[in-house]
Computed example of a mutant assay.
Amino acid sequence: MIEPIAGTVEQCPFCHRTIRGTVEICPHCGAERRFGPTLRESLLTFAVGVSVGPVFMLIIGAGVQLAVLAAAIGGLLGFFVAHSRHAGDRWMKPPAGWTPPE
């Protein structure tokens, strides 16, 4: 039997079984390799950026126009934070009730 090359296999971080290094979904537990932020993470950081900036501007009395500008800048910053924080590969937990194909 031919043994696989050591650099082409890795361990699933959830079920700890050996998998190919190129798989996107673990065939044993269903964990998924993701690149970049999920939609939830992008929306959450965007919402935080859109809300924190205007609140701060209104507290210091800068006015509504600067608060709107701060919301736009905060939304962009939130989007970029999500994408820079989750810029690499990572494994996501398998979905509940996932069963391996037969």
Rank of each mutant, 00 (worst) to 15 (best):
M1P: 14
I2Q: 14
I5L: 13
G7L: 10
G7M: 13
T8C: 11
V9Q: 15
E10Q: 15
E10H: 10
C12S: 01
C12N: 04
P13E: 04
P13N: 02
F14G: 06
H16Q: 15
H16C: 09
T18C: 08
T18G: 06
T18Y: 03
I19D: 05
R20P: 00
G21M: 06
T22D: 13
T22E: 12
T22H: 10
V23M: 07
E24K: 13
I25E: 14
C26V: 08
C26R: 01
G30E: 00
G30Q: 02
A31M: 05
E32W: 00
E32M: 06
R33M: 02
R33W: 00
R33G: 00
R34C: 03
F35H: 13
F35A: 07
G36I: 08
P37N: 05
T38Y: 03
T38C: 06
L39P: 09
R40G: 10
S42I: 03
L43V: 15
L44D: 02
T45F: 14
T45R: 06
T45I: 00
A47S: 15
A47F: 08
G49I: 00
G49R: 01
S51D: 02
S51W: 04
P54N: 07
P54M: 09
V55D: 01
F56I: 12
F56G: 02
F56A: 11
F56M: 10
L58I: 11
L58N: 08
I60W: 06
A62R: 12
G63R: 14
V64T: 09
V64Y: 06
Q65G: 05
L66V: 03
V68G: 04
L69R: 01
A70P: 00
A70V: 01
A71N: 06
A72E: 00
I73V: 15
G74C: 05
G74E: 02
G74A: 06
G75S: 11
G75T: 01
L77Q: 05
G78W: 05
G78S: 11
G78N: 03
F79M: 15
F79H: 13
F80D: 01
F80L: 15
V81G: 03
A82P: 14
A82L: 05
A82W: 08
H83W: 13
S84W: 12
R85M: 12
R85L: 12
H86A: 13
H86T: 04
A87E: 11
A87I: 02
A87F: 09
G88K: 08
R90H: 11
W91K: 01
W91V: 02
K93P: 12
K93H: 12
P94F: 08
P95S: 03
P95G: 01
A96F: 09
A96Y: 09
A96R: 15
G97D: 02
G97P: 03
G97Y: 02
G97A: 03
G97K: 07
W98H: 05
T99S: 12
P100A: 13
P101E: 12
